[in-house]
Design a protein around this nucleic acid. Structure first.
Length: 265
DNA sequence: ATGGCCATCGCGGATGGA
């Protein structure tokens, strides 16, 4: 089974690309979408249902919006971070069955951008990340097999940055943001991309400007983190750059995780 | 090069993204 995350930067624009991608990746079990930018009544649920997919959605007008697209029915769907006062649609979680038959909690998240260090939006991003960590701590107690995937808007370190000198301590690259990311690692969550050899300069987002994709001037800010209980099932994880070459692409590429029961081909 | 792009809302140009 495969799990994937993709910030589509408007599902209204990218729906055909998402359906094409799903058709080309039939092993997909759950795809987490971010920045759908659609209220739930406008979500193209029928288009996914016609292609054999279950959906769980949490959207709003114009901004944000997250969804889970799943082959299996999605159980115990929860929207946002319970208990956090947040008027934005940024988190959706649900449970499916893992290849070992145990429940697997999937958390799809769109972390705040944060604009720039020192701004109100940056302070909000820090508060939001603290609330996420506190909530996930309890979630991991309830369901040890947990995957947190989405657009984190944070790089782990300079290996995730095309120009670490020019972008030193700028948004997505600050020490403070990276400390929050390490707090999630401290819960036992593992960056699954780094479990495997990867191409040099392995990014998930490229600016639309300056021919950044062609020059591979990007950042790795979309991540799939797996709990320790999931790690034995992890078989591969890679960034799929192909959709970034589409006509009218999202600025983000999907990240894909392959889970397998150990010992199975 | 002090920037270049894209989506939304809505019909011009501001706002947000990253």
């Amino acid at each position: 089974m495969q799990l994937a995350t993709w910030n589509v930067n408007s599902l209204a624009v990218r729906l055909p690309q998402v359906l094409d991608w799903l058709a080309a990746h039939p092993q997909t079990s759950v795809l987490a979408l971010q920045e759908t930018k659609l209220t739930d009544d406008k979500f193209p649920q029928q288009a996914f249902a016609d292609a054999g997919w279950h959906t769980a959605v949490f959207g709003q007008k114009t901004y944000n919006g997250v969804a889970l697209i799943s082959r299996q029915p999605l159980r115990d769907v929860v929207r946002n971070i319970p208990g956090m006062d947040c008027d934005m649609a940024r988190v959706i979680s649900a449970t499916v069955d893992a290849p070992n038959g145990q429940p697997l909690r999937i958390v799809g998240a769109y972390m705040p951008n944060g604009q720039a260090p020192g701004t109100d939006k940056f302070a909000y991003k820090m508060r939001w990340l603290t609330a996420l960590r506190d909530w996930l701590q309890g979630e991991l107690q309830k369901t040890p097999q947990l995957v947190l995937m989405g657009d984190f808007n944070i790089t782990f370190d300079d290996a995730d940055v095309w120009d670490p000198v020019g972008l030193h301590e700028t948004i997505h690259c600050t020490t403070e943001e990276r400390a929050h990311l390490q707090n999630l690692v401290g819960l036992g969550l593992i960056d699954s991309v780094r479990l495997f050899p990867q191409p040099e300069k392995n990014y998930s987002w490229w600016d639309y400007r300056n021919m950044a994709f062609r020059r591979n001037r990007g950042l790795r800010i979309d991540h799939i983190l797996v709990s320790a209980a999931v790690q034995p099932l992890v078989h591969a994880c890679q960034i799929d750059k192909l959709p970034r070459k589409n006509e009218r692409p999202s600025d983000h590429a999907p990240v894909v995780l392959t889970l397998q029961q150990p010992g199975r081909a």
